[in-house]
Simulated scan of single mutants.
Amino acid sequence: MGDPLESLRALCSALPEVTERLSHGEPTWFVRGKKTFVMFADHHHDDRLGFWCAAPPGTQEELVAAAPDRYFRPPYVGHRGWLGVYLDVPVDWPEVAEIVQDAYRMVAPKVLVAQLDSAQDA
């Protein structure tokens, strides 16, 4: 995949009832226009390119410990278990797609998660 922002945008925008708008000066994706699940981070608080996202409990600690060159604890939201993913390294886009879907599942209403699951089963 080419441009990391466009690749991330495609993954997020493919999910049910997702909207994008700027938040804190960065592209950010919301479920039903309200709940943030992914925030782009273009050198936002450091010299790195990446994104921050909601994550299931324990995921941040596991991935950061296993691959600190690819994952990090983001500022501000890291204490809530959010995961940071670097995009300025070779990116495993199928894995990032799973991470984005997990983030969506953490904040989306059950009816939208069910809609996502039924679309994937089809």
Rank of each mutant, 00 (worst) to 15 (best):
F30C: 02
D88A: 02
L22C: 08
K35Q: 09
R73L: 04
D3H: 15
F30S: 00
E95G: 13
R80V: 04
Q101I: 06
V31K: 04
G50A: 10
L8D: 11
L49N: 02
H79G: 10
H24G: 06
P75D: 13
Y71V: 07
G50M: 10
P27Q: 12
D102K: 03
P4V: 04
G84R: 02
T19I: 06
M1C: 07
A114T: 09
Y71D: 01
L83Q: 00
L8Q: 12
R48L: 11
A14H: 00
T36Y: 08
L116P: 05
Q60Y: 00
G81H: 12
D92M: 03
P57W: 08
L63H: 00
E17W: 03
A41E: 09
V91G: 07
T19E: 15
A108K: 00
P74L: 10
M1Q: 09
L15Q: 07
Y76P: 11
P56K: 03
P57S: 05
R73Y: 02
R105N: 00
A122I: 12
V113W: 00
H44P: 08
F40L: 11
Y104T: 01
P16I: 10
P27V: 10
P75N: 09
M1D: 13
V89G: 04
V38H: 05
P109Q: 03
V64G: 08
S23D: 14
F37C: 03
E62D: 15
A41Q: 13
L87D: 05
A119P: 03
Q60T: 03
S118F: 01
R32M: 05
V113L: 01
M106G: 03
V107M: 08
V89S: 08
M1L: 11
Q115K: 14
L116N: 06
L22N: 15
T59N: 02
D121L: 14
S7P: 05
M106S: 02
A67Y: 11
V85A: 10
K35D: 01
F30A: 07
L15P: 03
D92W: 03
H45C: 15
K110Y: 01
H44M: 11
V18W: 11
T36F: 05
C53W: 04
